[in-house]
């Protein structure tokens, strides 16, 4: 009897903890407060990490050595599950990601506290913004110039600067390639891209979620449209350049699939 009581008491003691546990209730969001967020662009090629100077072969059977990958990210919008959007102020919403300069992180401030399930951003500079020619845009112009993100012989931005060398069945000797995506006065190649966040990005005062995005450089030429560098070699045979025409329209379609959110870190101090 005594032993049974002891046993029961012990059992009860042990299981009482089951009841006592409780988790914190999620605090209500104070919409009058603001927090920060970070977008981290992790550049890759077809599932592998992008390493400048390393080679890979794409499905066009061309072997590329990438030496430069820079692109413009702009007009960032945070979207909640009910569809309400927070549009990051346009005059500070233009950024450049540059692998060679080690610029992969976009830090955003003064975002209204909330739970965000999607983000949207533009790849390049929207035509309206470019034609507005506002003061802030010119400062971005200087910044873009320093990172080789402007056309040289006409006015306008390069949305993507993708360069390196390559070999193919047509050119067994390695020659340069240059892919400069952008708009010109004939075509507007600016596109918006919407991404789902696998877990909610919780922006709070003192919290800074970090959204880890993977960018796949391979889809620029090897996406839903296949663009062969060997089809774009100049007459002298010294290099391949893709800087205008229908190819840019195709690239704009390809790059819709260039980005994907891998994960979201929540909390503070979660920077890479």
């Amino acid at each position: 009897m005594k032993q049974n009581i002891k046993a029961i008491a012990l059992f009860l003691f042990t299981t009482s903890f089951l009841i006592s546990c409780s988790s914190d209730d999620t605090a209500a969001i104070d919409e009058n407060t603001f927090g920060e967020a970070q977008l981290y662009f992790d550049n890759g090629v077809n599932g592998d990490k992008l390493i400048l100077g390393a080679s890979y072969t794409n499905s066009n059977n061309e072997r590329l050595t990438i030496n430069r990958l820079n692109y413009i990210i702009s007009n960032i919008i945070f979207i909640k599950s009910d569809g309400t959007e927070y549009v990051y102020p346009k005059n500070k919403s233009y950024f450049i990601v540059s692998e060679e300069s080690g610029i992969n992180t976009i830090n955003l401030t003064d975002i209204p506290a909330g739970d965000y399930k999607q983000i949207k951003f533009g790849l390049g500079v929207d035509n309206q913004r470019y034609l507005e020619g506002e003061t802030a845009q010119q400062e971005f112009w200087d910044y873009a110039t320093s990172l080789d993100m402007v056309w040289t012989w006409s006015t306008g931005y390069r949305f993507i600067n993708f360069e390196g060398t390559f070999t193919s069945d047509s050119n067994p000797e390695s020659i340069n390639f240059q892919v400069h995506q952008g708009s010109n006065s004939a075509t507007d190649n600016y596109r918006e891209i919407m991404l789902n966040l696998p877990t909610t990005a919780r922006v709070r005062m003192g919290d800074k979620p970090s959204i880890h995005i993977i960018a796949d450089a391979n889809v620029i030429l090897d996406g839903i449209n296949k663009i062969k560098l060997s089809d774009n070699i100049n007459q002298a045979g010294t290099s391949a350049a893709i800087m205008g025409g229908e190819n840019l329209v195709k690239i704009a379609a390809n790059t819709q699939a260039m980005f994907k959110v891998d994960h979201v870190h929540n909390g503070s101090g979660t920077e890479h």
Partner: peptide
């Protein structure tokens, strides 16, 4: 216990 984990999100991390 010995574990190995990937330092990165890529196939070749």
């Amino acid at each position: 216990q010995k574990y190995q984990s990937r330092d990165g999100v890529f196939n070749n991390s």
